[in-house]
Amino acid sequence: MSPKASLELVCPAGNLPALKVAVDNGADCVYMGFKDNTNARAFAGLNFDQASAREGVRYAHARGTKVLLALNTFPQSDTWERWQAAVDNAVELGIDAVILADPGLMRYAAKNYPNLRLHLSVQGSATNYEAINFYHEHFGIQRAVIPRVLSLAQVEQVVKNTPVEIELFGFGGLCVMVEGRCALSSYATGESPNTCGVCSPAKAVRWEQTPTGLESRLNGILLDRYGKDENAGYPTLCKGRFEVNNETYYAIEEPTSLNTLEMLPEMIAMGIAAIKIEGRQRSPAYVEQVTKVWRSAIDSAKRAPDSYAVNPAWMAQLNKVAEGQQNTLGAYHRPWK
């Protein structure tokens, strides 16, 4: 089978109901995390314990869907065993691939489980083929997820120069910073994606109604202030409004969603192996809607790439669940930078 025909749809599973709707609506793979800080969505009420993980794998495998496990935070010296045990557990559960960011952990997995399929997480910050080939040569990784900072032309350059499959983010929340290289959250709160699996953690967020508007604070730092007619989104640090040279604006990024539906034929033509949907922290309704739309779009683009066009109904459905009700092509489209 040529890589062009094998583009996979990789959908988020924050819990068992989300996993099931992703499987039922056409995901080729689902990705999930354990109920601790071994993954980059270590949120309360999210993720899988042993029983739900076992049931999730059973449900997905019975329907021909693969299950990937995100172990994509960086173990610290005193908690190393937890990550090591998570790799052991993944093997025991029959997970199809683990998504790792830490080189030390990757070495452990490659050495102890030579048959376990390894994916390089977006948190591994590999933005060029030399970095990806490093992980391939040393640990035999079979797929790399690329940070949301490359243009499509740069992605193509990567694909041409590595034997490793490339997975791209297609839809969902947009990290403006290179994943794995952003300590903004720990600068403000002490907890970052790298160390704790969280960004702008909910426990540090305070909402306050004031005479000048609704204020969102992160560990006391004012991230934004909303007027009566404005929608207040989750206060992610980089999506607040700040003052630079006496001008107040979204200095880093607007609250917006990545949506690359229109680039699908190009992505398929350049041999991208998989499209990832962000959002393990989102509801099963979101997962259902997004999986359905992307399944239709991928099937349509594979069937007739030359006549492919984005169906307005798809956009309408995605816009209903998008963060900030706005879409962007992000860095894939050069002018965004």
Partner: peptide
């Protein structure tokens, strides 16, 4: 603290 492809 952070790197991006975007120039702020």
């Amino acid at each position: 603290l952070a790197f991006s492809a975007r120039c702020f």
